[in-house]
């Protein structure tokens, strides 16, 4: 079923973009590498509910947050991780991420990041174009594969990633600890940003010129205080 059909958007959206949205939604409904489908959907639901802390409120100390699983299958710790990623990512530090990963394990952490970063662009585009957000899928059954890919290594990021034979930009291997989700994420990135034209400085495949796209991108990164 085409959940992101072109006729569900009030303005024309590139079918290639909608196709990647479909793939992401399909991926939410099946068990991942570390989370079950129900847990994956719960993480996206938590992403949507995440709110910034009231001004002046201290950021919670991870050490004091329970990892006992709640009724939605997620612990308060995972809820705080999702909150931080969703609305306060600019304040994530290596110490914070290390402390989280010590408790969740690398796989659960990376897959949580993957789910947030796949679905935020989908929801945000819907919001910007005035389309209601897509209902979350009904989660399927099955167990996570818990497979750690070969060829990973630690090269400066918070988590291990592909190193054997790697020659691309770091951003493309950021979530390679969970290859299926990384592939879905890169589908989103490629379809919504450069297509097959990243190396070309003059673009004709988009309505805006490349400098116009890059200006919007740079302002977005700066508003989010993202150094990378």
């Amino acid at each position: 079923m085409a959940e992101f059909g072109a006729n569900t958007f009030p303005r024309p959206v590139d079918p290639a973009v909608l196709s990647t949205f479909e793939a992401v939604w399909d991926g939410l409904a099946v068990a991942g590498t570390w989370w079950t489908a129900a847990e994956r959907v719960a993480i996206v639901a938590a992403t949507r509910r995440s709110l910034r802390l009231p001004l002046g409120e201290t950021v919670p100390d991870i050490a004091g947050i329970s990892d006992a699983v709640g009724p939605d299958g997620l612990s308060p710790l995972i809820h705080e991780v999702v909150r931080r990623l969703s609305v306060d990512a600019g304040r994530i530090t290596r110490d914070w991420a290390t402390a989280v990963i010590e408790r969740t394990g690398v796989g659960h952490y990376v897959e949580t990041v993957a789910l947030v970063v796949q679905t935020v662009p989908v929801d945000m585009l819907c919001d910007l174009l005035g389309r209601p957000r897509q209902d979350l899928p009904v989660p399927g059954m099955g167990e996570p594969s818990r497979v750690v890919p070969d060829g990973l290594g630690q090269e400066g990021a918070f988590v291990p990633w592909v190193v054997d034979g790697w020659s691309g930009p770091n951003v493309a291997r950021a979530l390679s600890f969970v290859p299926e989700d990384n592939s879905l994420r890169m589908g989103i990135v490629t379809s919504m940003y450069s297509g097959r034209h990243f190396e070309e400085m003059v673009w004709s495949h988009r309505s805006l010129s490349r400098p116009q796209v890059e200006l919007v991108a740079a302002r977005t990164s700066a508003v989010n205080e993202c150094f990378y």
Partner: peptide, 11 residues
């Protein structure tokens, strides 16, 4: 880019 910045900061 709202996805990309969260990837960069989260990882």
């Amino acid at each position: 880019f709202n996805g990309l910045v969260r990837s960069a900061d989260g990882i």
